[in-house]
Design a protein around this nucleic acid. Structure first.
Lengths: 243, 243
DNA sequence: TATACATACATGTATATACTTTTCCCGCGT
DNA sequence: ACGCGGGAAAAGTATATACATGTATGTATA
């Protein structure tokens, strides 16, 4: 009896998903101990090392806290996401135990403006994919994501159903990101944004401009607008030693 | 022949240090392949799984890039100014060619509230230093920084003249930061904030909550408020883990 | 010459096993 | 009642082994 899905992903990823799902659904109450590694082994039929890896990665991602000799606990809830993985807003919302839904407003192929072409570091004007998606947490819109995608890296972007697969999941699966740029600012909502996010014009929004690279090539340029009163971004970082 | 130091840290950490050191000293040129896992095994006398773990963690930390079937390479250097360094607003303003000035509104020793004590992870209520400083760019206020400091790490904090030395410069010089937590949100300015930053009540502000650790001890807790229309934050990263 | 296949080699994953380190708790003795 | 000691339990580390998967390359064949 496996309790794990029969997908192509590695076993330790399935175990991670299994644990995150059970955290999200509240199967394990937030203040009590999670099953021990050996209990996971018995329940899931995988080796202890595999369970250990899943738990270790979830710990380093900030979902769990582990104490040697004591046990594994759910980390105090972060009402925010890690800057690194802010894209995966769907997973973030589900991990918090809330319902996620997204609505695709635009998915098209366009010829970019001069300025947009510049941010892709294109020498000449080349076509791009363009998508606009609203993400909901418990039917409340929390984020508007406008994204431009380089077709030479992700040729089938406009044929996906992003109400089912999160855009970021799809992108990460198709192309490795070697570098990310973020610019964060706070702006009042303009009329169109306000309408799409169901907020008042002028409400505070967190605006995140991001660009991702695959090697030397710009893969995506995104503009993510978060409703200030409904969402915040977080990151935890151990500064690296000498590089 | 070990080539690894004889310290108390785990083996895979020693292997990571060994690799980072050799990258740092340029022993492995930036564009060529690193030794394979099996070569590391032969050279260091540890098991392949241990080498693999070291390489995997360095990859997820952004130092390396690995291609299955091909090899391991040094990741392109990451441009600095991750979110870690945004504190040094004085340097940033000067680097832009503008005038920086700061005004100290509060510098005192206080007994924290329960909640504040919690964010310092204090078991019992202990005294803290508290400062409030406004930072100006060309005589225009751009940032309000409210900061709480752990006296057991920085005993003389309240005796400094922060109109001359930036608070962050002082802190960085006194204690090493081993970990940083950021939470970013967008909020409308309340009355007091608006007055201090010379903006209208309700204007969009970028609010940055940050905590820094020195080892296991929380060193500082800060609340940095940026005027949305006058400032934004940027960062550039190399990738981290998946998930 | 060009294509297909075999092969070697690299990283990736999974397991079994053994041992270490830390913590908690129960029972015993004073 | 108190403290101490020892054992059980939990996470942490290290290794050997096996197999999976992806890449490059060389060789034989059409």
């Amino acid at each position: 009896m496996s309790a794990l899905p029969d997908t192509a992903s590695p076993l330790y990823e399935k175990v991670k998903d299994y644990i995150l799902t059970n955290i999200g659904t509240g199967k394990w109450s937030k203040d009590r101990k999670l099953p021990s590694e050996n209990e996971f082994v018995a329940a899931l039929g995988v080796s202890r090392m595999t369970v250990h890896r899943a738990l270790r990665e979830l710990t380093s991602a900030g979902f769990l806290i582990r104490l040697q000799g004591v046990g594994t606990f759910i980390a105090p809830p972060r009402p925010q996401s890690t800057l690194i993985e802010i894209n995966n807003i769907a997973a973030e919302i589900v991990a918090r135990g809330n319902r996620h839904r997204s609505e695709v407003l635009v998915l098209e192929r366009i010829t970019p403006t001069k300025e947009l072409s510049l941010s892709f570091e294109f020498a000449k004007r080349a076509a791009l994919y363009h998508s606009v998606v609203v993400n909901f947490e418990n039917d409340l819109p929390v984020q508007l994501e406008e994204r431009f995608v380089n077709p030479s890296l992700i040729p089938d972007y406009d044929k996906q159903d992003f109400s089912k697969t999160a855009t970021y999941d799809y992108l990460m699966q198709k192309t490795p990101v070697t570098e990310v740029e973020h610019i964060i600012s706070a702006v009042p909502a303009d009329a169109e944004t306000a309408q799409r996010l169901a907020i008042d014009i002028g409400s505070c929004c967190l605006l995140l401009h991001r660009r991702t690279w695959t090697g030397a090539v710009v893969a995506t340029v995104s503009k993510l607008t978060y409703v200030g009163s409904r969402y915040s971004l977080g990151s935890r970082y151990s500064p690296s030693r000498k590089a």
